[in-house]
């Protein structure tokens, strides 16, 4: 009899755990919503603007041979991983991030538009993007051929989904931090990058290498810039209580 009682108590506990876990699981995806503080301070806070420069040699785009689906992908694919504006030397597709000061907690959470990975003309579009943890990643296949979107973060698979022609788009949450390498194993020339941060203090440079990041707390911060070919550069910057601070970084 005692055994019976014990088991039923455990079963009860188990139901409770399952229910709780259920609730937690339900909440997990929406936690950014619930936890989001108001971002009204944005207009008054300091803004960091600047330009990422590169004056080095810019190789001509490489032509990669396409080994399958040439009717859709074409015979060659041109890749320009290094895109520099001739007039300003501004570097496109660099990802700029302002590191939080030691011990500082991200002051706000904003809603980025969903991080989109579009399989189109046998390329991932966009080629580079930055996103925030918890953002939704949406993956589409616009091509009439099968792709897969294999996202790798530090030797482990963040997401590897088949993208059957005419299949459903994928909607998932970004759950990992850091550099996301996006590959297609069907077309080995397909490669893209996503950089995921756990705060909103990042931007991606425009065609002329410009970026703008707001909402950072005043004080000394480190700015780090990532580029797929050129790597990482960093710089310390003093951020005033309000107003605009201009920071240019150059890849030497």
């Amino acid at each position: 009899m005692t055994g019976y009682h014990r088991i039923s108590a455990q079963a009860l506990g188990r139901i409770l755990v399952v229910v709780m876990f259920f609730v937690v699981a339900g909440l997990a995806d929406w936690s950014p919503l619930l936890a989001a503080p108001q971002s009204s301070s944005e207009s008054t806070g300091p803004v960091i603007v600047g330009r990422i420069l590169y004056r080095g040699p810019v190789p001509a785009p490489t032509q990669l041979a396409v080994n399958r689906d040439t009717d859709v992908c074409g015979v060659t694919i041109s890749t320009a991983s290094l895109s520099v504006d001739a007039g300003t030397h501004g570097l496109r597709n660099a990802v700029v991030h302002v590191d939080l000061a030691a011990g500082e907690v991200s002051a706000r959470i904003v809603f980025q538009s969903p991080a989109v990975v579009r399989n189109k003309d046998c390329r991932f579009q966009p080629h580079v993007a930055a996103a925030q943890m918890g953002d939704e990643v949406q993956i589409f296949n616009d091509d009439p051929v099968m792709h897969n979107t294999n996202i790798i973060v530090e030797n482990s698979t963040a997401l590897n989904v088949a993208m059957v022609a005419g299949g459903n788009p994928i909607k998932k949450r970004l759950k990992k931090l850091g550099l996301h390498l996006v590959k297609c194993n069907v077309h080995k020339f397909m490669q893209a990058y996503r950089v995921v941060f756990d705060d909103p203090y990042f931007d991606q440079t425009t065609e002329t290498g410009q970026f703008s990041i707001s909402g950072v707390s005043p004080g000394t911060h480190r700015i780090s810039v990532w580029h797929e070919i050129l790597g990482v550069v960093e710089k310390e910057v003093q951020v005033p209580a309000r107003g605009t601070v201009v920071v240019d970084l150059e890849y030497k």
Binding site: N141, A162, V164, G167, N168
Partner: peptide, 9 residues
């Protein structure tokens, strides 16, 4: 490289 087919199909 083996992808998951659950979502797309």
């Amino acid at each position: 490289p083996m992808p998951s087919y659950a979502d797309t199909i």
